[in-house]
Design a protein around this nucleic acid. Structure first.
Lengths: 207, 207
DNA sequence: TAAATTATTGATCAGTTGATCAAATTATAG
DNA sequence: CTATAATTTGATCAACTGATCAATAATTTA
């Protein structure tokens, strides 16, 4: 009953329920947004009572944090799996850009839920999540920076400020995730292709 | 008393009160975020009663829309004033990047309030503002795209997809606005300088 | 099977929300 | 100065929020 850590009683049924509730939370976030995603709304979509959510999660914050963790894990593993297999740094960078954008359309529900949480949830000190921005803790950010460093040390890439370049790449990708108009106007194939060409010019060319 | 348009009764005192309430809304958004920015909280900071807000604004949405308009207008004029004066396209692009980033630190309160509204407010159909993304209506987006077109027609810039390049530039800038860690790690002078160099390589070089 | 633990529910709680309204205050006009 | 209109308030409203609790129901254990 009592583990060293907090409360880690993981019955099979408990884990299943938690996943079910988290999945309902994602659907709810996508459908009506964070503000309207009350426990009642989430419970309705999970087809359980509100009290059951309170039973499996300490509070609403706990539920949202668990949901966020699930979303980040999914996105991270999706992109890393398809990036780390590639051998050369330049192709790795291309894959990183391509898969990041592909994830958006393939898991758009997850992506929206992720945005909803990141821009609404706050720490107990009332600091918004979007202002925290992990960096060191973010495996995707680390992977991207490591690709850039490796390219520079192998002299495939030229000299530039890695942090700035990384956030420029990430920002260019994110812009496509947010901007709905762009999404329907340009198309992900064209967008990722143009982005790859753009950063090839900025990174690989004579410097 | 009765104008053609909706209700456009603009006494001097009315306009002053509206501005005062909007200013209080901005401060409140910055201090405690959109979700906690109730009419009561805004009223407290404006040192008026909640009923007075309801008197000057149809509802909370109306207030938030008016606040958003003020924020967008401020940011737009700030950047356009400092960009359109420049004569050559390349310097214009540099100025656009530089002033966009400078605005962040100079009016950080406004910037946070803007983010809070854009990522929380929704249309009556429950469509989040961040998914609308004007594009054609956004003067800043237009200015940036026009700079790129002009540079291409004068053959100062090489050939590339203007929409993609514009959103890459905008995304690279926005990333700096959101990412708190980056903000303290790199510094806006260095960041804008590196960004200018980056896009010079991607835009101006041999293509 | 019987006992004990775990899972689930409906009912209910106090707290906040945005909005409304009559009454009070202030400004404006005649 | 008086009457009329515009401004501001406090009190109050129903609706909804997240959370809690005792009472069942289901499952596990002995």
């Amino acid at each position: 009953m009592g583990n060293e850590k907090a409360d880690e009683k993981s019955t099979f049924i408990t884990e299943a329920r938690r996943k079910q509730i988290i999945e309902a939370a994602i659907i709810t976030l996508n459908e009506i947004g964070y503000v309207k995603s009350s426990l009642a709304q989430i419970a309705k979509r999970a087809k359980v009572s509100t009290a059951l959510i309170s039973y499996h999660f300490r509070d609403k914050n706990d539920l949202m944090n668990a949901t966020l963790l699930q979303l980040i894990t999914d996105k991270t593993s999706y992109i890393l799996e398809r990036t780390q297999a590639i051998s050369t740094v330049r192709d790795k960078l291309h894959a990183f850009i391509k898969t990041s954008i592909t994830y958006h359309s393939e898991r758009s529900t997850y992506n929206t839920a992720l945005i909803e949480i990141v821009f609404h949830a706050r720490t107990p000190d009332n600091v918004p999540y979007y202002k925290l921005n992990d960096d060191e803790d973010d495996p995707l950010s680390n992977e991207l920076q490591q690709i850039l460093y490796e390219g520079q040390s192998k002299e495939v890439f030229c000299k530039f400020h890695v942090s700035v370049m990384a956030s420029a790449i990430q920002g260019s990708i994110d812009e496509y995730l947010f901007n709905g108009k762009l999404n329907s106007k340009v198309g992900l194939e064209l967008y990722s292709m143009e982005l790859i060409r753009l950063f090839d010019r900025a990174i690989v060319n004579k410097c």
